[in-house]
Simulated scan of single mutants.
Amino acid sequence: MMNMTLSTLARRLALPLAGVVMLAIPGAFAEERPVVTTTTASGDEVREFCTNIADAARDQRYLLQKQELETLQKDVDERIKVLETRRAEYEDWLKRRNEFLKSAEAGLVEIYRKMKPDAAAGQLAELDPEIASAIVMKLPPRQSSTILGEMPADKAAALTRIIASATDPNTSKDPS
């Protein structure tokens, strides 16, 4: 009876023991799938294939980089054209401005030339000292001295300092 009990016991334990063993083994319930090989190439053949297409891949990369550089070059060229147009507009504006200033300056000097010295002195005393000194410098020396004589002493001295510094060869031409 003990023999039978052991065999019955063994049968009864065999199934749960098999389940425990199956749980302990990773992938025991995993479904086995066949390995699909797409090529029968060896490692050397794969390396040779990669070596053979490396030049084509490099050429393609260079082509893409070249296209990108050409696009960037077009953008730069367009910006240069815009800047050149703006530069030409600015140069034209500057030329017209300088011509206007020359004619205005000549007209302004002529106005002060025709004024009486006491009236010119009063007007120049109220102007910016640099502008006033530029006008006085362009007037004939006799008229300039008469105008400076009619001005308040401090204003005449300021204009004289500006005129003197403008004629000083040791003064820097660069205003900065």
Rank of each mutant, 00 (worst) to 15 (best):
Glu105Pro: 09
Phe49Gln: 03
Val46Gly: 06
Ile53Tyr: 05
Pro129Glu: 05
Ala121Pro: 11
Val46Lys: 06
Gln60Lys: 07
Ile25Asn: 09
Lys102Thr: 13
Arg79Pro: 03
Ala54His: 06
Arg11Gly: 09
Lys155Asp: 10
Arg96Cys: 06
Pro175Ala: 08
Leu17Phe: 11
Ala125Gly: 14
Arg12Val: 13
Asp118Gly: 02
Ser42Ile: 04
Gly122Thr: 04
Met115Gln: 10
Ile163His: 06
Arg61Met: 09
Pro34Arg: 06
Thr85Leu: 13
Arg58Trp: 04
Lys95Trp: 02
Asp77Leu: 04
Arg113Tyr: 01
Ala18Thr: 07
Gln60Asp: 11
Arg87Gly: 15
Ile80Val: 10
Ala56Val: 02
Pro26Glu: 12
Ala125Arg: 12
Asp59Met: 12
Glu70Met: 01
Phe29Thr: 08
Thr146His: 04
Glu130Lys: 10
Glu31Lys: 08
Asp174Glu: 07
Ala41Gly: 11
Lys95Cys: 04
Arg113Pro: 09
Thr160Glu: 13
Asn3Lys: 12
Asp174Arg: 02
Glu89Ile: 02
Val20Phe: 08
Thr171Lys: 15
Arg87Phe: 02
Gln60Arg: 05
Phe100Thr: 13
Arg61Gln: 15
Ile162Asn: 05
Ile131Glu: 05
Pro117Asp: 11
Thr146Ser: 07
Phe49Gly: 08
Tyr90Asn: 11
Asn98Met: 13
Asp75Thr: 06
Met4Trp: 01
Leu17His: 02
Arg96Asp: 13
Pro16Phe: 00
Gln65Arg: 10
Glu110Ile: 15
Leu148Trp: 04
Ser42Glu: 03
Ala106Lys: 11
Ser165Ala: 04
Ala24Asn: 05
Glu89Thr: 13
Glu68Lys: 00
Gly43Val: 14
Ser42Gly: 11
Thr5Ile: 07
Pro140Trp: 01
Pro26His: 03
Pro140Ser: 10
Pro152Ile: 00
Pro141Phe: 00
Thr171Arg: 14
Tyr90Arg: 09
Ser176Lys: 09
Tyr90Phe: 11
Cys50Ile: 05
Ile162Met: 02
Thr5Tyr: 00
Lys155Asn: 07
Ser145Ala: 04
Arg142Met: 04
Arg47His: 10
Pro152Cys: 01
Thr171Gly: 06
Pro152Gly: 12
Lys116Glu: 13
Arg86Gln: 12
Ser42Tyr: 09
Tyr112Ile: 06
Asn3Arg: 15
